[in-house]
Write a protein that binds this DNA or RNA. Sequence first.
DNA 1: TTCATTTTAGACCGATCGGTCACAAATGAT
DNA 2: ATCATTTGTGACCGATCGGTCTAAAATGAA
Lengths: 195, 195
Amino acid sequence: MPRPREYDEDQVLELAMAQFWSHGYEATSMSALMEATGLAKGSLYKGFGDKHQLFVKTLVRYLERGRHALRECIEDADDARAGLRRWLEDNAEPAAHDGLRRGCFAVNTAVELAPHDAEIRRVLRDHERRMEKLYQDCVRRGIEDGSLRADLDPPNAARWITTVVYGLQVRSKLGMSHTLGLETAAQALDSMAGA
Amino acid sequence: MPRPREYDEDQVLELAMAQFWSHGYEATSMSALMEATGLAKGSLYKGFGDKHQLFVKTLVRYLERGRHALRECIEDADDARAGLRRWLEDNAEPAAHDGLRRGCFAVNTAVELAPHDAEIRRVLRDHERRMEKLYQDCVRRGIEDGSLRADLDPPNAARWITTVVYGLQVRSKLGMSHTLGLETAAQALDSMAGA
DNA sequence: TTCATTTTAGACCGATCGGTCACAAATGAT
DNA sequence: ATCATTTGTGACCGATCGGTCTAAAATGAA
C-alpha cells in the first residue's frame, strides 16, 4: 500500500562509501553525499539516519567485505604462505591502482575517528580481532604445512601481519609505487617464511 | 617603533600543534585554535596566515623535531641495533602514554590530507625521504658493527622500518597496549638483527 | 474514487564555518 | 606631545554546515 522506494539501498551505500572512503568523515558534507548518491536530503535521513549512522553503515559494509576477501584469499591458496603472500601483495597494490590514494577505509577511519568516537573504535577493534583470528588460523596452517616458520607464535604473528598491513596502507597515502610495495610485502613474508 | 608582540610565537605554535595533532585538520576550528592559543582571530591571521598555513607551520615543526629525535636516538646508542631498538620501542609507546590516542602527527596528516593536498604531500614525502636516509645510515652502521644482518639492503631495510613504524602508529590509534607494542618492536628488530 | 501510508523533494532552520576589517592600544622616534 | 607603525580585538561577512519539516507524489486496499 505504501509508495515504493525509488533507490537501491545497496547501491546508495556503495556510493556513500566511495565518498567517505576518499575524503574521510569530516570532509564529506551531506551535500556531497546527496550529489554522490542522487538522493535528496530527506530521503537520506529517512532511509539511513543521520550522517554518522550512514557512515557506520558504510564502514561495517566495508569491513565485512574485507574479512571475506581475506578468508577467500587464504582458502584459495595452495599453502598458507602463498595465501599470505597474495594478501600482502594485494595490500601493496591499491595505492598505485587508484590515483586517488584512498588507501584502506578502515585505516583511514581508525586514524581520523577512533580516538574520539567510542562506537567507531568498538567496530574497528572488533574487526581487528576477527582479522587477527583469521591471520592466526593462517599461521597455524602454515606451521603445519611447513610453509611458515615452525617457531612462530600465532597470536604474535597475527599482530605482526596487522602491523605491516597498516604500514603499507599508510605508505600508499603518500603514493608508494607498486614495485616498492611488493618489495615490502616480500620482506614481510621472508620474516615468517619456513626454512 | 611598532607595538610589540604580546605572545610567544613558539608557544602559540606548540598549542596549535596540540590541537591539530589531537583532532586533525578538518575537525579543528578556528575558534578551537583561538581558545587553545589564547589569541584572538585577527592575531592568528596576522601572525600565522590562514588555517592551512598555520597547519603547515605546526606540521613542519613536528617533522623537524621527529628527525632530530631519530638522529639523537641513533647517535646516542652503543651500536646500530640498540639505537634502532630504542627508536622502535619509542614508537610503540605513545599510544599507552596519552589516553588521547593521538598517535603520530605525520601519519595522521598523511592519512587525512595527503591524498588531496599537494603541498602537504610534498612536505611529508620530503620528510619520509630524510627519515629513510637516517634509517639507511643506521643500517649501514649496523652492518659494519655486526649488530644487524650483513645481507640487508640499506634502502630496502629503511623502507621496511618506515612501514613498521607507520603500522605501530596506526595500531596506537585503536589503543594498542604498551606490552604488545614492544612485542612488535622486538619482532621488527629480530627481522633485521645480526647473527 | 477515496483513503491510509510511505517516499520524495527541497525550502527552511539556527549554528558554525573560515576569513576580513575597522578601530583601539601600545610602542620608539622626533 | 605628536606621529608613524605595528599589534590586538571583536564585530561582522557570506557561505555552508548538519538536520528538520511540510507538502506533493506514488502506491495498494477498500
